[in-house]
């Protein structure tokens, strides 16, 4: 039996008088990839922000390895890689400088692996170019290089493939699969059809949203 990493119990969240989801419960086991589906505005990003601990506007329980996430916040942050809507890339810094600061924020990352990670995302030769001279896709890649650096078991990725070309997407999908096979788990949202050859569980938020706004 595999280990339960993240347990979500009866999650409720409303925004601007609209219930985004109610009674949302699921368990994420080690080695699982979960895709959150839903229309625009169905609360996918909100859910990911809640799960990562950025947003606290929810009711219900979130457990990390069986313990309330608020109580093991530091350990949870060590175990988490969050990839948000904005890439978190500073335009005036070079890709390498950006990743170095990220490495300083996450003590588990070895800064000497940064050049390798940049090579993996196809940015070899761009290490010293300020990010504002790079294309939108290349900027996303700078941020995606974190996936190659990280040792965190839980990846929460919000639209990671935006502005990435086909080959890049295939490489990242391969990476996600590898991560899952190593015992890590992934929660992601994406508009792409996932081409991952492996079990991907889907959670659809449209079915969970209350049609009535009244509780």
């Amino acid at each position: 039996m595999s280990e339960q990493l993240l347990t979500v119990h009866k999650l409720f969240c409303e925004r601007d008088d609209r219930v985004l989801f109610d009674q949302l419960s699921f368990t994420l086991e080690a080695g699982e990839i979960v895709q959150i589906e839903g229309q625009n505005g169905s609360g996918k990003t909100t859910l990911l922000r809640i799960l990562s601990g950025l947003s606290r506007h929810y009711e219900g329980d979130i457990l990390w390895r069986g313990e309330p996430v608020e109580e093991v916040r530091e350990q949870f942050c060590r175990d988490l890689l969050y990839f948000g809507h904005q890439a978190g890339v500073k335009a005036v810094l070079t890709p390498e400088e950006n990743l170095r600061w990220y490495a300083a924020l996450s003590p588990a990352i070895d800064a000497s692996t940064i050049p390798g990670a940049l090579e993996q995302v196809g940015l070899k030769g761009y290490e010293d170019v300020p990010c504002h001279s790079l294309s939108a896709g290349q900027n996303r890649r700078v941020s995606l290089a974190r996936l190659y650096l990280s040792h965190a078991p839980l990846w929460i990725l919000d639209e990671p493939f935006t502005a990435i070309d086909k080959r890049g997407v295939a490489a990242k999908e391969q990476l996600l699969l590898q991560h899952a096979q190593r015992g890590g788990s992934v929660i992601l949202t994406t508009h792409h059809e996932l081409g991952i050859k492996g079990p991907v569980r889907k959670i659809n938020l449209d079915q969970l949203a209350g049609t009535s706004t009244w509780r």
Partner: peptide, 10 residues
């Protein structure tokens, strides 16, 4: 640019 989110999740 989202750096603050990374900062808070560190």
């Amino acid at each position: 640019d989202g750096s603050l989110e990374q900062l808070l999740l560190s």
